[in-house]
Amino acid sequence: MSTDDDVTATQRSGTGSVARREGLGAEPTAEPTETVGFIGLGNMGGPMAARLVRAGYRVQGFDLAEPARQAFAGTGGTVAPELTGAVRGASVIVLMLPNSDIVEATVRDAGFAVEHGATVIDMSSSEPMRTRALAAELAQRGVTLVDAPVSGGVSRARTGELTVMTGGEPADLDRVAPILTQLGTATRVGAVGSGHAVKALNNLLSATHLLVTCEAILAGERFGLDPETMLSIFNGSSGRSGSTENKWPNFILPGTYDSGFGLRLMLKDVRIATALADQVGAPDPLGHATAELWARAAEALEATADHTEIVNWLRKDASR
Rank of each mutant, 00 (worst) to 15 (best):
L265S: 08
G260L: 10
R315T: 13
T35N: 04
T185V: 11
G168D: 01
V189I: 10
L41A: 08
P227E: 07
L286K: 09
P254R: 07
E215G: 07
R88M: 08
E245T: 14
S91G: 15
L97D: 03
T163A: 15
P254L: 07
T10I: 13
W313F: 15
L263Q: 07
T159G: 11
G16A: 11
L267A: 11
R58K: 12
L83E: 03
D174S: 14
L225G: 10
A26I: 06
G184L: 06
A298K: 02
G85D: 04
L210A: 05
I233Q: 00
D278R: 14
T229D: 06
P249S: 06
V36T: 04
V311Q: 06
R12D: 10
N202D: 10
M123K: 04
L253I: 15
S243Y: 06
T256A: 09
I121Q: 00
G236Q: 10
L64S: 13
E309D: 10
G242Q: 08
V18I: 14
Q279L: 12
T10L: 13
A216P: 06
V107Y: 00
L180R: 03
T187D: 11
S237E: 05
P67E: 11
S259P: 07
A135W: 02
D122N: 10
L205A: 07
D174M: 00
L162N: 06
G195N: 04
R175S: 02
A49F: 06
L218E: 14
D5L: 13
D6A: 14
E221V: 13
M44F: 12
R320P: 05
R141M: 02
P285C: 12
I179E: 01
A298L: 08
A275V: 01
V143E: 01
F38T: 03
W313E: 10
S126P: 05
A157C: 09
G281T: 04
E31T: 11
R88T: 12
M1C: 09
G37E: 03
G89C: 05
T84R: 15
R296G: 06
E27L: 14
R315F: 02
A80I: 05
G236L: 06
A136Y: 00
T304Q: 15
V87W: 03
G142Q: 02
G168I: 01
A148L: 01
R315Y: 11
R158E: 14
F62T: 03
V176Q: 00
S13I: 02
A55V: 01
V270T: 10
T290E: 05
L210S: 03
M44A: 15
P32D: 12
R54H: 10
R175V: 01
R315A: 11
L138S: 05
V198Q: 00
D172M: 00
Q70R: 15
N202T: 12
L267F: 07
A273S: 06
K199N: 07
A177H: 05
V103M: 01
V189E: 02
N203H: 06
T8M: 09
A105Q: 15
R51I: 08
S206Y: 01
G142Y: 01
W294P: 06
R132A: 03
V311L: 08
A197G: 00
R20H: 13
G190E: 08
S91R: 11
D4Q: 13
